[in-house]
Each structure stands twice: as structure tokens, then as C-alpha cells.
Design a protein around this nucleic acid. Structure first.
Lengths: 156, 156
DNA sequence: ATTCTCACGTCAACTAAGTTGACATTAGAA
DNA sequence: TTCTAATGTCAACTTAGTTGACGTGAGAAT
């Protein structure tokens, strides 16, 4: 006998009894996160990178010449936690740091062309998932999704 | 000068330039997850529990008499990874295991009354966030959110 | 009745991604 | 010079997982 189709490795959807009307929504939040990031994580893993590296690339792409300290603030992690992944990105020349032009004592970070390519590809994988989902529900549905997520995100 | 309002500990929203139309949606997915789970995680932490424990309680609540093997399947983790948190829940008598009534060689898991209370409280914290967000957009908005998240979750 | 096998349990070593604390470096500011 | 702010680094720890190896207990098979 076959082994009853072991299926996906994570939680599979719709296998649990709903005890509450909102359980389905609750579970969708779990699966949604994974659904959005799965392809990007695979892409990154193939390059020897992972989520923390992507987070750094994502932020630096949107805040060129950000200082180390500001990056730490935005990411919400300690400088020691930042050290390893940041060091790898610098070593691989996906990121460059320069001391501030004349003034300041902080180091400013910026993506290289290679870093930009990788950041864009990884984020594209995530945006593709979103775009396809939005396409299925149309602009009003997408707007509603944004409104709901905004309200949820406010609980931070 | 003040220190420019050090703000929240995580990523704070809306601080990044948008390079792409979908960047806002992408970031909402990050913040949304944290927004939904924050209160629940604090509640659990106060009890000396965390997300893995909640995941176990959540699943067992919705699949009473689930076997260890099936639980491993649903959670998508190894039996070694399950061992610690499951052991704690049994030790604290939030969960009981019994060998199957007559047949089978598997152990069946079930919540105790105390386990049910905690599972419900933790999940309630998450559902409260969802409910409030849904209330702000009305039933059609909530339905659209579900549709979008369903489409995203399908990428698993 | 022994043996086989399945479900479960556990030990050890490892990885990823963080944490805190302590201390060193480096370069403007006083 | 000396002070201090921004950065860098070392060590020890935590959480939440991983793989591999091996042990146990009970039903099934011969």
C-alpha cells in the first residue's frame, strides 16, 4: 500500500474542525504568510541567503545611505544579530558601506547592482503571489484586503 | 535634541520608500502577522508557554483523540521537535494521552479543561484582532480578505 | 511462541536566528 | 587631549527547529 499520499510538509489547510467562525480566518493568516514567502525563500536559499538577508536588502533598497544604527532600528534586531547577515552581504558585495562623505561618524549602506538584482528578484517572487491573488478578486477586493490588513497591523 | 522618538521595537510601518506598487501590501503581510499574534504571544509568555505550545493546543482542540503521528503530520515538524513542548503540556496537565481504547498501538491526545481554557484564551486574542478589523470593513470586505488570503495560501 | 514491525520515546549533535553582557575601536565633538 | 557616539566583536545563552541512531512496547504474522 502506498502510504496514503503524505501530502505537503507543513500544516495542510482545511484539515481541522472549526470551533469558531473566525478559525478559518486565523488559519488563513498562517498559510498566507507561508504562501507569500515560500517561492522567495527557495530562491534565496539557492543563493545561500535567507530571510534575514532579504530583510536587510529590502530595507536598504528603500532607504539608500541608511546608517547601521537606523537599519537596526527599522529591522528591530540587535546589532549583534545584524552583524552576521550584514557581514555576508558586504563580503558578497551585494552591499557596500562608506563612511559618511565629510561629516558624521556613521557608516552608510547602499546596494550594489548585484544586490539590487537579488533584492528585486526575491521581492518579485513575493509580489507575484500577491498580484495573482489580487487579480482574482479585482481592485475593490484588493482594497478591502489592504484595509483589513492595515487594521490588523495597527495592533503592533 | 530628543532622539527622534525611538518608537516601536519592530519594523515600524510606513517608514520605507515604496519602490513598487505592491510594496505596501508586502509589508502589510509582515505587520499583519505580528499584529494578530502579539497579544496572544504575550498572554502565552505570561504562562510560560509559546507559539509551538499554542499550535499543539490549537490542533488538538480541533482534532480530539488525534494520534502523535497525525499531530506531527499536521504541524509539519519532526517528532523530536514535538517532544519538548508536548512533554511540557502533558506535565502541566493541559493535555492527556491515553492508549487507544482497545485497538491500535497509537496514543491519543485530548485537551483537559485547563488546556481548553488556555487554548481558547490564546486563540481569542488572535480572533479579537481579526474581528475588530473585519468590523471596520463590514462583511463584504471581510469576504474579500478571505478570498485574497485563500488565493495567497494556495501557493503552498 | 517467537519474531517482525509500527508507533512512539529519547539521546546526541547540529543549525538558524535571535538574545544580553562586556569590551574594543574609531573618529568627530568638546 | 579627552569625551562620547557609532560601530565592531567576543562569549554565553535561548528558542525552535533539524538529522541520525537507537531503544521500547504492543499488535500482527508466521
Amino acid at each position: 500500500m502506498q502510504k496514503t499520499a503524505t501530502q505537503a510538509p507543513g500544516l495542510h489547510r482545511a484539515s481541522l474542525t472549526k470551533l469558531n467562525e473566525l478559525d478559518a480566518a486565523l488559519e488563513l493568516m498562517y498559510y498566507g504568510w507561508r504562501g507569500m514567502t515560500l517561492a522567495a525563500d527557495e530562491y534565496l536559499a539557492a543563493l545561500g541567503l535567507s530571510r534575514p538577508h532579504h530583510r536587510i536588502l529590502y530595507v536598504v533598497a528603500r532607504r539608500p545611505d541608511i546608517s547601521i544604527g537606523a537599519l537596526i532600528e527599522v529591522l528591530g534586531i540587535s546589532k549583534q544579530a545584524l552583524n552576521r547577515p550584514l557581514g555576508l552581504l558586504l563580503e558578497r558585495k551585494l552591499l557596500v558601506s562608506k563612511r559618511s562623505p565629510e561629516q558624521h561618524r556613521s557608516k552608510l549602506l547602499r546596494l550594489t547592482a548585484a544586490g539590487q538584482r537579488i533584492e528585486q528578484s526575491a521581492s518579485d517572487h513575493e509580489r507575484k503571489v500577491l498580484r495573482e491573488a489580487f487579480d482574482r478578486v479585482g481592485a475593490p477586493g484588493a482594497a478591502a484586503w489592504m484595509a483589513v490588513m492595515g487594521a490588523i497591523a495597527d495592533n503592533n
